[in-house]
Design a protein around this nucleic acid. Structure first.
Lengths: 213, 213
DNA sequence: CGTCCGTTTTACCGAATGGTCAAATAAGAC
DNA sequence: GTCTTATTTGACCATTCGGTAAAACGGACG
């Protein structure tokens, strides 16, 4: 890489080199581990640094503060966590659309439990860093989906339900298997994988609730 | 109160006087506030003491450590949180039994959201202080209830479902309105009370899922 | 070689935190 | 009033925490 002029000197503002990108990625990975387990206040820079294989000052060379790491992770949640929410085709078969959304969300809980717990921790604290986003972005998303669902109901294609509470139900039921994994495993046994059973159960649940009378 | 011989000198071991009981109660109340909002690590003795109207050393006179307060609160959860679980009459009408259990649990979320969030925080951290209890007490409770439900299913009195996942569903759906209250309010609007709608929705949901075919 | 520049480390700082101690202060019991 | 015991307080401590400063390192390029 040849010398680039006008290189902003405020070290590590945007990931330029592959190395920087990799280290910042490692830090986010470590931060996700620690924040999702311990919550924001419980997480320490030392633990994150150690988990990322860096010294604390070195970590702070890439991210200027603990808050910065946390906020970067929360911003990342928008992609990993809320993007799959964007998929509900008003022209598709209602039950199929909803059921596959449910299964997709359940798969997220299985494959990205740390992200789910990070989000849960943030909400539990009162969402100090996400409230504006929830009140705008998420709210809009819910309203859009609710409108679609309401359309299906009005057309008699699924049984009538409150669309907003239906969406809450999907979130609650799927995220439960990530956020309360410890409880689920304590009840079902440590070696028992709860997800296949959960997938079948949720399919049954929503199918029966929504099948038109 | 006359002199009691062999009075254990390790100050404030068990609440003897009315005053002691009141102060310990105030501390638990303050601790519930702070722990449920901030999580274990986020809660500080200073904040708890201030919320309880005491100085920090005075607080530590009644409870020997931060852990002691936290553990006392978690022990208390068994009564406030899991006791209403004890009520499912195998000889009652299945749907009525389950639906009233659901409504009872939802009322808990409405009336004791701090307890729900305290529990959620503990589970999210991996339940370091409750795991043994979950694996014994709670597991047993779930198995007992599952057996009752399975009996109802075998008798054809409700539609077949996985009883354990059914119980998880009830917990997830009801606790969601306490633990994710901020999100619910952000989506529905701050002034909108979600609980009436939730009650109706959950009644519909479980009724449709469980009504025999 | 030296120099430049991004990176890493060592040493450190001030504030916060969980907790202690001993002295001061209520609060009965007699 | 006085003795005893329970309670409260202020001063303090060791550790941890988030963060800083500056020096040392290391590779790319002339």
């Amino acid at each position: 890489m040849t010398k680039i002029p006008a290189k902003p000197k405020g070290a590590a503002v945007k990931p330029r080199t592959r190395i920087q990108r990799a280290k910042r990625e490692a830090i986010l990975e470590a931060g996700l581990d620690v924040f999702s387990q311990e919550g924001f206040r419980g997480a320490t820079l030392d633990r994150i640094a150690k988990a990322a294989g860096l010294s604390k000052p070195n970590l702070l060379y890439y991210y200027p503060s603990k808050d910065a790491i946390h906020e970067a992770l929360l911003r990342g949640l928008l992609d990993t966590w809320l993007a799959p929410l964007g998929a509900m085709d008003p022209d598709g078969d209602p039950l199929t659309e909803i059921l596959s959304y449910v299964q997709g969300k359940l798969a997220l809980s299985r494959d990205y439990p740390r992200e789910s717990r990070l989000f849960a921790n943030e909400i539990l604290r009162g969402a100090p860093n996400m409230k504006p986003m929830l009140q705008t972005h998420l709210r809009q998303m819910v309203e859009d989906h609710a409108a679609i669902i309401r359309g299906w109901i009005d057309a008699g294609r699924i049984a009538p339900v409150d669309p907003v509470h239906l969406i809450f139900s999907i979130w609650a039921l799927t995220q439960h298997y990530a956020d309360f994994e410890v409880q689920v495993r304590a009840v079902m046994g440590e070696d028992h994988d709860p997800f296949p059973g959960a997938a079948a159960h949720l399919d049954t649940l929503f199918r029966r609730m929504l099948s038109p009378a």
